[in-house]
Design a protein around this nucleic acid. Structure first.
Lengths: 110, 110
DNA sequence: TTATTTCATTGCAATATTACGATGAATCTA
DNA sequence: TAGATTCATCGTAATATTGCAATGAAATAA
């Protein structure tokens, strides 16, 4: 029905999928990569950098901010975005634990 | 328009987002965790293990198989699924590189 | 005050995703 | 062969996502 049955899954499973979902769009991947690359606050030129309209970029930024992965600070008429390093680290721990499940696997089965 | 403009992003950005998207649903996270946990092939009792209908599980399995993360082998009337270890490792490298972007960051900016 | 700039929000259209009942295909069992 | 079992696929309904034009809100500049 287009709606996920989150209630039948564990909090951990839902948390993993929420983080993964935000990385599930190339625009958000590109935004994060650009914020890391310039290694400083960037004000708004993400719209020029990535080829999407201003409202669309704003919407993607909103989702990233909602998960706490980026921070935005108002500077005059501009808004300055950057990575939230602490929350990024927390997210990394959660995703890494999921990705590293394979280290306990003994052998191929099929 | 409900459709991502993949053509304006790099292959790497699109690949990251494709892998992330498949992890963007708790059912697929649960399926993968279960396949890792039992450390052997499991046939169909994923439907019993996870609380979704058989067609729905089958659909999620199809997406995981399409990305190469799991393999399915027919055994009589049953189908045996397991993790594709090699492709899982390849996926890990791609996602890890993305997650570890923060190690080159010098300091907080905002 | 009146533009101008910058970004967020609203509203909408197009497409994608999620879920499941019904059905089909393949194999096994009696 | 005739049922039973297992899983995939089809069809459909409900909801989510993506994208942008239009508009709004807030600060700056003239």
């Amino acid at each position: 029905m287009g709606i996920s049955k989150t209630e039948i899954f564990t909090d951990q499973q839902n948390e993993i999928s929420l983080f993964a979902k935000v990385f599930g769009h190339p625009a958000r991947v590109a935004i994060l990569q650009h914020l890391f690359k310039i290694d400083a606050c960037i004000c708004g030129d993400l719209v020029a950098e990535i080829g999407l309209s201003q409202p669309t970029i704003s919407q993607h930024l909103k989702e990233l901010k909602h998960l706490g992965l980026i921070k935005g600070s108002v500077e005059g008429t501009r808004v300055c975005y950057c990575i939230d390093a602490k929350n990024w680290s927390k997210m990394k721990l959660i995703i890494l634990e999921f990705l590293n499940q394979d280290i306990s696997i003994k052998e191929e089965c099929c």
